[in-house]
């Protein structure tokens, strides 16, 4: 438990202090939303209708571009070798890395969502389901994404490969998350079932992704 919190605290300091990349994902999120809105044009009813799925997909893309950072810096300065060699349970370390990634990327994305939702004229009743689904779904994105980062850590440049590996694995979370956000706005009874399946996907990722990450880290560093 102490090792877990030590790694989370260390990663958060690195992410939020000078040179950390935490705000890059949020900036990217805002820019992609603006690009989409500009491409669609001034059709306010259409934009407002697709705002929830659009915010979900763009939050996913913003997570995607930040994944390469999770193990990269630690690998370059050698601290990853120390972490792997000294940690009693590498799986717990992998959970900590994913948790730190969510706190430094996923949570800021969610905090930025309401502001961007105003830009897209999201209807008032849709904010709650959207934020709730993002809160449940984005930890799953961080867990699966951290696995892809661990898988490619020994490669010099991997962001494109990470995108190819991780996108198919993100699909259930995107479908259930976006589905819950849209259904919840319309008072659709499918809201709860989508939310449950979203929670199940995240929990499933929480069990298997750290195991796979640990195995991938060991294979990469031997």
């Amino acid at each position: 438990m102490r090792a877990l919190s030590a790694i989370i605290l260390r990663d958060l300091k690195l992410a939020f202090r000078a040179g950390g990349g935490s705000m890059q994902a949020v900036s990217f999120f805002a820019i992609v939303i603006v690009l989409f809105a500009l491409a669609i044009g001034p059709d306010i009813p259409l934009i407002s209708k697709i705002a929830s799925p659009l915010l979900w997909a763009c939050a996913l893309l913003s997570t995607l571009i930040s994944l390469d950072q999770i193990y990269r810096a630690d690998r370059e300065d050698g601290s990853l070798d120390v972490i792997v060699a000294t940690s009693e349970e590498l799986v717990v370390t992998c959970v900590a890395k994913a948790a730190a990634h969510w706190l430094s990327t996923g949570l800021p994305l969610i905090l930025a969502t309401p502001a961007l939702a105003i830009l897209l004229n999201l209807e008032a009743g849709a904010y709650g389901p959207l934020i709730l689904s993002l809160l449940i779904g984005t930890p799953g994105l961080s867990l699966i994404g951290a696995f892809a980062a661990a898988l490619t850590v020994s490669l010099p440049r991997a962001s494109l490969l990470i995108s190819i590996i991780v996108s198919p694995l993100f699909v259930p979370i995107l479908i259930f998350g976006s589905g819950a956000a849209t259904a919840g706005a319309g008072g659709d009874p499918q809201f709860m079932s989508n939310l449950m399946l979203l929670g199940a996907s995240t929990l499933f990722a929480a069990i298997f992704a750290p195991l796979a990450s640990a195995a991938a880290l060991r294979s990469n560093l031997d």
């Binding site: 696995f147 898988l151 020994s154 590996i165 198919p168 694995l169 499933f204 298997f208 992704a209 796979a212 195995a215 991938a216 294979s219 990469n220």
Partner: peptide
């Protein structure tokens, strides 16, 4: 190394 890492990915993808 490629074999081990690709194997891990195939286990994860088997969920599908």
């Amino acid at each position: 190394r490629a074999a081990r890492l690709a194997a891990i990915l195939s286990f994860v993808g088997f969920v599908n």
